[in-house]
Simulated assay, not measured.
Amino acid sequence: MLYIVPTPIGNLEDITFRSLRILKEVDLILTENYKISKKLLNFYNVKTSTKTYHIYNERKKIPFILKEIKNGKNLALISNAGTPSISDPGFLLIKNCIKHSIEIECLPGPTSIIPALVISGFPINEFTFIGFLPKKKRKMKLEKLSKENRTFIFYESPHRLLRTLNDLKDFFGLKRKIVICKEISKIFQETLRGNIKDMILYYENVKKIFGEYILILDKKNENE
């Protein structure tokens, strides 16, 4: 069996008892980056063997993984933080496991999307997770999204944050409400609320933009 095991996105206490038990019981843990994962594994005294599995070696590693599971071993997949396959490696492996009739179980657990969405205060009956905007055909993607009326969730890196805010301005206008969550569950956690214009003005005056960002863009309102 393949277990998809979510891991904390910041605070090491944000992991379930069951996730820890699975990590200790499986035959092998697939880690996106062992140097990052070892902090969690050492903290909870997880001694299970590990092998790396990331976007640069996944096609090469999948045959080995499938063989191990077919030979009766249980494996767990973890990413650097959060739930594997959500803007992290995992999709291709899961797809191949399904193709080969291998049982998969995804444990519930940490993800940055839901906490950010909930605390935004925006309508969540209809929302779309976009993740990182594509580098190519970026404006084409935004133009398509601008024609929909629902809450959008974006991931963004610090060095592209201002560019993305300006792109959102071009397609959604300066008055569209937005919430920006930074470093959820970490020491420098911060939540900013306002419209796109407010956020551009704020970050233009920040000397050093750092951390991981989630942008929650509200639906269109009557005042726009």
Rank of each mutant, 00 (worst) to 15 (best):
R18G: 06
L12K: 05
H54N: 15
L40Y: 04
L23H: 03
R21W: 08
N45G: 07
E13P: 14
K39A: 11
L12W: 04
T31A: 09
N11E: 13
N42S: 05
Y53M: 08
K24M: 07
T52G: 02
Y44E: 03
V46I: 15
N33I: 01
R21M: 08
Y44P: 02
L40E: 02
R21E: 10
K35L: 09
T16A: 13
S37K: 06
K38V: 06
E25I: 03
D27F: 06
E13N: 15
R18E: 06
L40R: 01
L12G: 10
L30D: 00
K38F: 03
K24T: 09
E25R: 12
K38R: 12
I15W: 07
T50Y: 00
Y44M: 00
L28E: 00
L12I: 11
L20S: 03
K38C: 13
K38E: 11
Y53S: 06
E13Y: 10
N42E: 12
F43Q: 02
T31G: 03
V26K: 13
K47Y: 11
F17H: 02
K38T: 02
F17L: 06
L28F: 11
K38M: 04
S49P: 14
T52P: 02
Y34W: 08
I36F: 03
K51W: 05
I36D: 00
N45Q: 09
V26G: 09
L12H: 03
S37T: 06
L41F: 05
Y53E: 12
V46R: 06
L23S: 03
V26Y: 10
T50K: 00
F17D: 03
T50I: 15
I15E: 01
T16D: 12
I36N: 02
K39S: 07
N33P: 03
K38G: 00
E13L: 13
V26L: 10
N33D: 13
